[in-house]
């Protein structure tokens, strides 16, 4: 009886290969394949119904999809920039604190400890037009006597979502930038003072360039996070009102699991992933540039 003799390197790699195939490759191939079919979750036999690039062409011409795409980019841009600015401010302030800094650092991380679903519920309550905290406060202070429809008005709803998003994730920036502030060598900062810089100028010309790599790392992490934003939006507005807060993944999620049109959802998903890939590459380029700027190598 002849036994199949595998080379040892293959045998040793086999467990990893099998696990990767099962967890990554099969779903990837399957979802990619299904994006070329009319696959519907309710009709399993439709998985074999090949329709070519129909789903992709349909997505390309679907205004709802592109609105969601644009809204996601908008959310990403606004949230990331505001989080960066707020995180930078927070980090700089915390770094100046002499007593109780550890406590502050810990407190700063509290928002990250909550599940986004809970944050969604919390802000859904805070922004509720009848019993919400914000309206209550505004009315008690006499600033307004009408109930502002925070989650019902299209623009305000988007604002509320961005607010919640920033509340949860500013600390990501703050923590990473704070780490950067600790890592900055003191000598160049002192040299800048002697060279005639005002505090703002030393920050702008010396401290900030040192922080840029840390900011770009935070940007890369957060851009992936926001590009797949789902939970907070799903809870707070469910994409409404009238799709005004619909993001890529709330749309894709609804198409896949509510409408059961898995093939089409997968096609949209593959287009959506391009966005994440684009931002990741973009920020890593920036990171590399900022690092080589500082002579830190590539």
């Amino acid at each position: 009886m002849s036994r199949l003799k595998l080379p040892p390197w293959l045998v040793l790699l086999l467990p990893a290969i099998i696990i990767l195939m099962a967890v990554v490759l099969v779903p990837l191939v399957l979802s990619f394949y299904s994006s070329f079919t009319a696959y519907q979750l309710t009709r399993p036999d439709s998985l074999t119904k090949w329709i070519g690039t129909f789903n992709y062409r349909k997505a390309a011409g679907d205004a709802n999809f592109w609105w969601a795409f644009g809204r996601t980019v908008l959310l990403l841009t606004i949230a990331l920039n505001l989080e960066m600015l707020l995180g930078l401010g927070l980090a700089v302030m915390v770094s100046k604190v002499t007593t109780g800094q550890r406590l502050l650092r810990t407190a700063m991380m509290f928002p990250m400890m909550f599940s986004p679903v809970l944050v969604g519920f919390q802000f859904k309550f805070i922004f509720n037009d009848n019993v919400g905290l914000v309206n209550n406060a505004l009315q008690s202070l006499g600033l307004t006597d009408v109930a502002i429809p925070w989650l019902v008005d299209g623009h305000l709803a988007m604002f509320s979502i961005i607010f919640a998003e920033i509340w949860t994730s500013t600390s990501v920036f703050a923590i990473l930038i704070l780490a950067g502030l600790y890592a900055i060598p003191q000598d160049p900062v002192e040299a800048a003072k002697v060279d005639g810089c005002t505090p703002w100028q030393s920050f702008r010309f010396v401290t900030l360039p040192f922080l840029m790599p840390f900011i770009y790392i935070a940007m890369a992490i957060r851009s992936l996070d926001v590009a797949r934003a789902y939970d907070i939006v799903q809870i707070m507005t469910n994409g409404g009102p009238a799709r005004r807060t619909e993001l890529l993944w709330t749309l894709i999620g609804r198409t896949a699991y509510v409408d059961a049109r898995m093939g089409y959802a997968n096609a949209m998903g593959y287009i959506a992933i391009l966005l994440s890939i684009f931002f990741t590459i973009y920020f890593f380029r920036k990171l590399t540039a900022a690092r080589s700027e500082l002579g830190m190598g590539v």
Binding site: P185, D187, P188, E190, A191, A192, V194, D195, F205, V206, P209, F210, E293, L294, G295
Partner: peptide
Amino acid sequence: NISMVFQNYALYPH
């Protein structure tokens, strides 16, 4: 209106 030379050079690396 002073200038200082530091032990670790303290140049601006960027």
